[in-house]
Amino acid sequence: MAFRRTAPRLPRRRTPVVMIVSVVLLGFVGFCAAAWEVVVPHALDQDIYLGVVGGGVEGHPFGTDQLGRDILQLSLAGARSALVGPIVVAVGSMVIGVLLGMVAGYRGGIVDMLAGRYADLLLALPAVLLAIVVAGMVGRGYWVTVGVLIVLFSPSDVRLVRGAVIEQMPRPYIESARVLGIRPSRIMFRHIAPNIVPIVVANLLLNVAFALVALSSLSYLGLGVPPGAPDWGRQLADGRELLGDNPLAAVIPGILIIVTATAVNLLGDWLSETLDRRAVAA
């Protein structure tokens, strides 16, 4: 018999220019986050006598803040708290989401019920507001805030994963595996988990962007990094007082937050679309 391969061919799409730009930009931000001490070793140097100056001054293209710190260098150093925290938040909440969501979706019953109520409870309040309250009351500090955000981000991840698992459960290949007597743990990790990877990865990126916005919001309110530490939200809070003297002190970190979050969001959207197309073609 002549069997034909009928693999559906994906029309190869060119990676859009916007994505390349986003990746390059995030690469640069990531590099600063990893090693700002090397890139801008004098970022935290203060010059009290100079104080705040506007942009265009020799050696300070974007001017300085009230402590005489160079805005450009300080902004590059701020990349670390802008990336590390959000990534930890996104990964942390997704780990909770995957563990709880998979068990809830696969087992159903009481575990599912409890996970559902937990999600309902935390989703009934706006995450950012709750983060403000908890971080403000429990204690201030970057990692406390990160921890609070992990907890607050997790319910939507639990729901996401649970939904994806439940969608998989009635598929014939899962039911066949059950009838074959394959162990539940194996079904979960071998058959279900790989098929929810795309949705998890795409959502991870969207969460990084959202966490970046949330974390810098909290820093802006003084609930994130300690005073004096390089952080875009903090810089914005400081810059708010300097709008008259050096508006760039607020404008530059503001643009950095928007651009970085946009790049991560674009990447997440693009990835989820691409993975979707693959899944359809499979």
């Binding site: 014939p172 290949y173 039911e175 066949s176 009838v179 790989p194 899944a279």
Partner: peptide, 18 residues
């Protein structure tokens, strides 16, 4: 499981794509 097995309708979701 060793005594009874099943084959479903839809060939496109019968096998794990991965």
């Amino acid at each position: 499981a060793r005594r009874v097995q099943i084959v479903f309708q839809d060939p496109y979701s019968a096998l794990n794509p991965g």
